[in-house]
Design a protein around this nucleic acid. Structure first.
Lengths: 188, 188
DNA sequence: TGTACATCAGTGAACGCGCGTTCACTGATGTAC
DNA sequence: TGTACATCAGTGAACGCGCGTTCACTGATGTAC
């Protein structure tokens, strides 16, 4: 049953990517390792050949998801012409598609309150991802003062996270849309 | 062992209040009914004399916590002289004390991503609480146009929620303070 | 108002279940000569 | 380059544990007469 080094690495990557998706969809506590491994096409017994614990996978999956989020927003900003990059980022983050599919979105919005209780390693990884997100947003602002750009970027980023989080909680679809639209209007 | 109707009602209220505290501190999934009942000074067997399920208690505890949050902010706003009520609400919500003690704070910040996956009943109760919070904030804005006041209030409220959520996730204390201070500066 | 009985709040043990983790095993891959 | 052996990725069963929920029981409260 042993696999080649290349296959092993592929399997490991597949588990991390599947985990990012499943954690974001069902929550960290709501995702069991057995289900997760099955979703990756494996049985749960092999998990510990790749990771020391669930917590370690959580950290790696969050790192992956943070990177993906930054990449998606950066790509959207550079590919969309005719409007400021900052505007594109806001619209992309506050899009109904992002709200409606948490599995491939930003982990800060899909796992926020769980991350606040996650272990230090996960929180450090996520902090790094947040800083990169803020830097990326700040770069689109093109303000003279870098401190002011960072300040504006932090504010915009936390507002985006709060808006998507609330848009998912709210049981009233109209209110949910209103939250996204209002936030876009205020930030844009 | 039977208790009087008055005692029964007191016990029930105590369970709900304890639950609001424990859920907000450890998360909904992270709080077991046995621990919760013990924290309320009872054994877990008696739980179902008061509630049909954990989900029902979650909904009631969230309703309680939402009401408490609105009350605390309203009181602070009306008791603090010398600055606009809106400014007081922002400062109170973004206070480090709120960040550092989630147990008595706003459930939208402490349970956000878990609430997005909660059952419909809980989400409806929370939606109602969010609407009341928004109305309360809107009332402090004293804008001519009520729609504009509501729009501003929704934006401010989701920004507050996002800021406190992120300030709790971040592993860097300076960044955590920076998030709160920046958000206060931008909203105020 | 007093008595007999029904109710039911709370206890503590037990239920099945799914969790994260461990382990003996298999057999293909990697390595040493 | 070929052979013998060690390694280890993945399987599937099992582990202890805590979860939400149920239940028989106790005895004080509430109710009917």
């Amino acid at each position: 049953m042993r696999k080649s080094k290349a296959d092993t690495e592929l399997t490991r990557r597949r588990i991390v990517q599947t985990a990012a998706r499943e954690f974001q969809r069902n929550g960290i506590g709501g995702t069991g390792l057995a289900d997760l491994m099955a979703a990756a096409g494996l049985t749960h017994g092999g998990f510990y050949r790749h990771f020391a614990s669930k917590d370690q996978l959580v950290a790696e999956a969050c790192a992956e998801a943070m990177k993906d989020t930054a990449d998606v927003l950066t790509s959207a900003a550079s590919e969309t012409a005719g409007q400021p990059k900052f505007q594109t980022i806001i619209e992309k983050y506050l899009d109904a598609a992002h709200r409606d599919d948490s599995s491939s979105g930003c982990p800060l919005a899909s796992l926020g309150s769980e991350l606040a209780r996650a272990d230090v390693n996960t929180r450090e990884v996520v902090t790094q991802g947040f800083n990169r997100l803020v830097d990326m947003v700040a770069a689109t602002l093109r303000r003279r003062n870098p401190d002011a750009a960072r300040s504006d970027a932090i504010f915009a980023t936390v507002a985006l996270i709060g808006a998507v989080t609330m848009s998912r909680i709210v049981a009233d679809p109209e209110l949910s849309d209103e939250i996204l639209d209002n936030t876009a209007a205020h930030l844009g």
